[in-house]
Amino acid sequence: MAVFHIGLIINPVAGLGGPAGFKGSDGMAAQALALGVEAKAARRTQTALEVLLGLRERLHFVTFPGAMGADLLTEMGFAHRVVGALSAGECCAADTRKAVELLQDAGVALILFAGGDGTARDVCAAVRDGQPVLGIPAGVKIQSGVYAISPRAAGELTARLLEGGLVRLSSGEVRDIDEQALREGRVTARWYGELTVPQEGGYVQQVKQGGVESEELVLGDLADWLQESWDADVRYVFGPGSTLHGLAQNLGLQTTLLGVDVIENGHLLAGDVTEAQLFELVDGHASRLLVTAIGGQGHIIGRGNQQISPRVLRAIGLEHLRVVATKRKLATLEGRPLLVDSGDVTLDDAFPDAVRVWAGYKEELLYPLGK
Rank of each mutant, 00 (worst) to 15 (best):
T196G: 04
I111L: 10
L166F: 07
T188R: 15
S150D: 00
R160D: 08
P198S: 08
A109H: 06
A138N: 03
L110G: 09
A159E: 05
G185H: 05
L112R: 06
V133M: 06
I136R: 12
D178M: 05
A138T: 00
A138P: 00
E156P: 13
W191D: 04
A126G: 05
V123P: 09
E163P: 14
Q143A: 11
A99L: 06
G155A: 02
G155S: 01
A148S: 08
A106S: 14
L103G: 13
G164E: 08
A120V: 12
G172A: 03
Q143F: 11
Q131V: 12
S144L: 09
A154D: 00
R175S: 03
S170D: 07
F113E: 02
L182K: 13
L102T: 08
A138M: 06
G116R: 14
A106G: 08
A114K: 10
V197Q: 01
E179P: 07
D176W: 05
G172S: 04
G107I: 11
Q180D: 07
Q104N: 13
I111K: 14
A109R: 13
I177L: 15
G193H: 00
G193L: 02
Q180I: 11
T188K: 15
L103E: 11
I142Y: 04
S171G: 10
A126T: 04
G193S: 04
D178G: 01
G155C: 04
E173D: 13
D122C: 13
V108R: 15
Q199T: 01
G172E: 01
I136P: 05
